[in-house]
Design a protein around this nucleic acid. Structure first.
Lengths: 224, 224
DNA sequence: AATTACAAGAATACTAGTAAACTAAAGGAA
DNA sequence: TTCCTTTAGTTTACTAGTATTCTTGTAATT
């Protein structure tokens, strides 16, 4: 398993959760993998409880399945669950940009603007990691500016389903497209044009449509 | 604290979670109450771990706040959080009934029909508890028929915010109105009329608009 | 040969004890 | 008096051990 450094003041539980999520997304803990509290705990240098608590949290989002007295497994890809995760995201983000059209302040807009400027910088000076980070931050900023942070966390808890399929995807999306999408969203919010904003965010989120059949042919064991 | 019987095969954690939620909703554990793992555990006749795990889950939805090495409190009513919970519910349920208009089968419709018939029975033979149960079941059935159960659970985790304010509410909603709302939703779905369905579900959910000021005057200590 | 019974092993659920951190009150010094 | 220090007590975070349940393999029996 891929273990990164534990942050200062990060609790053992948060560290376990972060590590598990990361390894599930990069497929180091592949769909269908058997995991046990004991094994994971010793790999991470923790005791069983914080690992157990992390597994419980992941199991609430159906990312792992815990079978009492039998063991725990990383859930196989359930394509329906991937689509449900996307459904939740599209529905909520459409409502969020709609609200943003109503109540965005100058400061909010310039925060988004600044983010996009940085994205353009990392297109010129390529850094896919930074761009991914800025993408996530852009969306979080949208939720923050309409004061719906809890909504973001709820949605985010389902995104692992999506992220790990994305990392199996055979063709990647051109970063420049993503930046253009973000610009379109910002533009619509500036114009207070709700339909335009909803359309732009929907277009953006549907870029991540996954070629299910190709991936399933490539990784048949990972699917339910 | 109000302790109900532990179900057969119910885990200690589920029992703790159910008991805590119930006591928070009926305000037996009032907003602002200090709770500790130890105290709750002995009241429920459990050890600290299952109680702790239940508290962790509630804290993810901001229903309790855990301060390491200091203590835990039942969150005071944060009106913004109540509105965010409602926001999530309205947005998601509107999307759900829209889907239902597209894909409801005969069996799905007759399930809803049957539920409404029962509601009418319990109007004639009054039972508020049964009616509340049927109301909840009606909404769950909507999510089930469009295969978005995980979405329901996500939304449901936030509903405690709403439910406990409802139990502080000074004027109750006439049960007959709720049944009429459900009929309107079903009718719209039958007609495959999305706008009508969205309007009906929005009307239904906005009945639970809470008279913030009245309640806040009645229970000032319960508010943040 | 097939099936049942049993034992060994492994895994989570739960219990319990320790560690670390924070609070608050008491007491001493300026 | 006021402020700082210290100490006792309480709380959650984490560690560790026990209980229970399920699986699996083996041996005995039919």
């Amino acid at each position: 398993m891929h273990i990164t450094e534990r942050f200062a003041k990060e609790t053992a539980r948060d560290f376990a959760l972060r590590t598990l999520k990361h390894n599930i997304i990069i497929l180091e803990l592949a769909p269908g993998s058997l995991v046990s509290e004991n094994e994971l705990a010793s790999e991470m240098g923790l005791s069983r409880t914080p690992v157990r608590e992390a597994l419980i949290e992941l199991s609430r989002a159906q990312i792992v399945e815990v079978y009492p007295q039998k063991g725990s497994v990383v859930s196989k890809i359930d394509y329906h669950m991937v689509e449900e995760a996307r459904f939740i995201r599209v529905v909520l983000e459409k409502a969020i940009v709609e609200l943003a059209c109503e109540c965005a302040l100058e400061d909010d807009l310039s925060l988004l603007e600044k983010n996009i400027k940085l994205q353009e910088f990392y297109i010129q000076n390529p850094s896919p990691d930074k761009l991914l980070e800025l993408d996530n931050e852009f969306h979080l900023d949208l939720f923050k500016m309409v004061h719906k942070i809890q909504t973001y966390y709820l949605m985010d808890s389902m995104m692992v389903h999506f992220d790990r399929v994305r990392s199996m995807s055979l063709h990647t999306i051109k970063d420049i497209k993503i930046v253009e999408d973000h610009k379109a969203v910002l533009e619509a919010i500036k114009n207070k044009n709700k339909d335009q904003a909803k359309q732009a965010i929907t277009k953006h989120l549907s870029r991540y449509i996954i070629d299910k059949d190709e991936i399933q042919k490539e990784y048949p064991d990972y699917f339910k």
